[in-house]
Amino acid sequence: MSGKLGGKVALVTGGRGGIGRAICERFIAEGATVFAADLSDTGSMGAASGAAAAFVQLDVTSEDQVKAAMGTVEAAAGKLDVLVNAAGIEIEKTIEHTTLEEWNRCFAVNVTGMFLTSKHALPLMRKAVSGGGTASIINFGSYDGFIADPGLAAYCASKGAVHALTRAMACDHGPEGIRVNAICPGYIDTPMLQCFFAGAGSGGGGRTIEALRDAVRNVHPIRNYGTPTDVANLVNWLASDEARYASGQLWVLDGGLSAQVQQMRL
């Protein structure tokens, strides 16, 4: 590996989840010092294998815990070059069936968590850019922030908020050398996606999980789901100095899914 992130310090929220774990592994391979922040050391996937990033206990909805996590990074590394906001949850319901508690929980993790981590990362990111160069915040939006999937109302709305927050932060902090972009994945094969297929309320319509999986796969122009590695490839580029002029943008990575008009079944 070429070591595109040598000397950089990175914090990845949701760092023990499906996509977060792939990002941490890639960052380590590229030479970065990596902190994986998550609710638990095993996240949604069991024990980590291979080179694991340093674990930081973090519930992104708690300002106290966010401050403590940044304190840990500061004490260990003194600065933060890259913040990846990958922590997120899905509520698989229409608004009619979504309780206020679920709605608030979805926004707390997906939007408020991003606000809190970014806000408290800024002082450390300013230290990273003090010698010139750029720091990079990479948020997780979704193609669902542009076009909706059925039965995912709170999630779609939260991702739309992420996209707008990404642009706003890019405008506000670009002048001090902090780039802000969002990655908008389509269907990526993660525990969250498998839960979606298995979920009774996800529009399965009585079909088997396998039939649903194949149907969704075949709607993609590229005829496959993405992998966490595909996402990590793009995160790695956006985190690197190669992307020094990329800011304020929403990077859709969906195998062509949203380039097409909905496929009519005539």
Partner: peptide, 20 residues
């Protein structure tokens, strides 16, 4: 090959100009 799943998109590189 790093971009194996990137397809059908128009990616903007403008230093943040059109985000404002």
């Amino acid at each position: 090959d790093q971009a194996a799943f990137a397809n059908g998109q128009c990616f903007v590189i403008d230093g943040g100009l059109t985000a404002a």
